[in-house]
Nucleic acid binder design. Structure first.
Lengths: 367, 367
DNA sequence: CTGTTAGCGCATTCAA
DNA sequence: TTGAATGCGCTAACAG
């Protein structure tokens, strides 16, 4: 008795086990269904798509059979046939950075909502790994790629792999760490404004000498936040003092580099750190140096990460809205992927930052 | 003039741009190469594999041509042909948990080293998303899957999707949050021992009343760490006091739940928190209640995450070695994927924990 | 030494 | 209403 007749005899709510048994269930394909009903593969294909070309009777039988065996078209075959995978790739420098995980969450959310899956790769801030990952993803594995550029790539300024990608016609969105000379969709934090906002707030609460803990210049975001810092000082007619700019070298002990500030003849009464880690370390260092936060010194960070809420005192900071950045990047990417017309216009979205005031900065005195 | 003759005229170091131009470079395939040389596709295929069946002369020309155009076999076609993707899937509850990102890093490292890529999915601790992700991955997309079970799944105890996966013959490794009744490779933290270690240390430094901040019972890891806590108390002839067990309900304010401890008639002088967040909040709460840490109260956490080093005082904790867990999981998975013989033996690897002593616990007095 | 054929699983156009 | 043929890109067994 053919299997499809068996189905009728089996309660629809029956336990899967009865069919699967303990044995390995081999995947069910169009071919197998076709053989079962002694029809052609294309007939089955159409029947499962509820095509009007197929008789109701046959469609019903085939559909019931397919449903019973949980038939699902094989992704690999579909990918090859359609020349697309409904998957988008992400290349980020480090997954252990909280900011990136929030971005990923945002990407995942929008991607899934639109029927896409997500493939995450890490460049570990290495140029070579970035290129490798990109080659892999570009080779048909994904329909588009979202990237935040590796530090080493920023340093080398070698962007050939990005150009190649675009020449290959693979949609690309850059976020956070972007590259000016690459023409593509971009989503970035308003870092200059964020730096300005942070510094301005320190000024507003009465800080007279504001230090900045930043990165080396080749890390774009650090450079931009520094720019915002300078703008805010200038805007308030405060002097810019080189002495108060610490470009952290992560190869050496960070605490030591920060400590210098407190032994200055004229030490700062405010610190703006361009990321959460520097800020957290600044808090601990200030604490250890006997400074009261925020009475003796106010400290403000960047990125509303995991740490901010749990330092003592909790850290005032600039929120970067990673989740939103991820969402926006994905929307742009999917737009480009599914774009049909001839003239596609690249966009650059700026995501604004917000101040989150906690305990590490003095209260604003509103007169 | 056929293209392959052109190649000879172009300096090998030439700029890609000359070929790619500003136009979209369409992917080069075996077929196109075959047409170029007016040979069959299989001849090209063999030539590129340096088969001895092909004449040296032809091989050279074809290889040069392919290299020049950066020919790479199309992944989708290979996947379909080989019925495998050289990709492994991961399903984790939350990517924003630092522990999971360390595990992912470990997975990524071992996978890449062995020529595999990684596809990360998030269940968001939802049963439904876990099932969806698994169905997607199981449908040919990956060669094997590594999972840490969603909370909701643990609560429902509905493991049909795991059984289905195994029936389908798809290798599965469970880590951290595992399921006893599923037969597969497993990697887990020695949570009982970790809980024991933590509690014992608090006892050793002289704590007399030790509270525990744990999860509801259905979260297995919380339950196990509680078990270790009880063991340590028993082992030291200390009373187990229900009053000192707080099962945190994350739907409500955590600080409020912890505060109860400090208003007990007989308050604790030690706190063991089964994760980093609870510990960090405990530190802040104790601080606010005017308690000196570690003089009045010692606090010990679990998981060496991002936060631990930046709390004030920095948090003593139990290191869970997520990176190692990820590595081990992947080794097991790849073993199973590439296993050829008939009788495969599942293993369960226990990863031991380690105490990391920082400032939130009293110094051990060695007499 | 080179080509033909078949097949991976599916969708689609065209023919019957 | 159904089926055959074609192709997505690649490999491998088999023929010549």
């Amino acid at each position: 008795m053919p299997l499809y007749q068996l189905i009728a005899k089996i309660d629809n709510n029956s336990d899967d086990e009865r069919i699967n048994g303990d044995h390995m269930k081999q995947k069910i394909t169009l071919k197998k269904i076709a053989k079962e009903f002694d029809v052609s593969i294309s007939t089955v294909s159409k029947a499962l798509k509820d095509s009007h070309e197929i008789s109701e009777e046959l469609k019903e039988k085939i559909q019931a059979f397919a449903k019973f065996y949980h038939y699902k078209p094989n992704s690999l075959a579909l990918n090859l046939r359609n020349q697309k995978t409904k998957t988008i790739g992400i290349i980020i420098p480090q997954i252990i950075h909280h900011f990136f995980t929030t971005v990923i969450s945002g990407i995942e959310y929008v991607a899934n909502k639109n029927g896409y899956n997500v493939m995450i790769c890490m460049s570990m801030d290495s140029y070579e790994k970035e290129v490798l990952n990109m080659d892999m993803l570009a080779n048909g594995v994904v329909d588009g790629i979202i990237v935040s550029v590796a530090k080493e790539t920023e340093e080398k300024k070698d962007y050939a792999h990005f150009k190649g990608l675009i020449n290959n016609g693979i949609p690309l969105v850059l976020f956070d760490r972007v590259i000016d000379e690459i023409k593509c969709n971009k989503v970035l934090t308003n870092d200059v404004d964020g730096g300005y906002l942070a510094t301005k707030h320190l000024i507003n609460i009465g800080c007279k000498r504001i230090a900045i803990l930043t990165t080396p210049d080749f890390v774009t975001v650090g450079k931009l936040r520094l720019e915002g810092y300078k703008n805010a000082l200038g805007n308030s007619n405060m002097d810019f003092d080189e002495e108060l700019v610490i470009q952290i070298n992560e190869e050496h002990d960070i605490t030591d580099q920060i400590k210098q500030l407190f032994s200055l003849k004229n030490p700062p009464d405010g610190v703006f750190a361009v990321n959460e880690i520097y800020a957290a370390i600044a808090i601990k260092t200030a604490n250890k140096n006997g400074l009261k936060i925020p009475d003796d010194i106010s400290i403000l960070g960047f990125t509303d990460g995991l740490i901010s809420q749990y330092t003592t005192p909790s850290l005032s900071t600039v929120a970067q809205h990673g989740y939103h950045i991820g969402q926006k990047s994905t929307e742009l990417l999917l737009n480009e992927i599914e774009f049909q017309d001839t003239e596609y216009q690249y966009q650059t979205k700026i995501i604004e930052t917000d101040l989150i005031i906690r305990e590490s900065t003095k209260k604003l005195n509103i007169p």
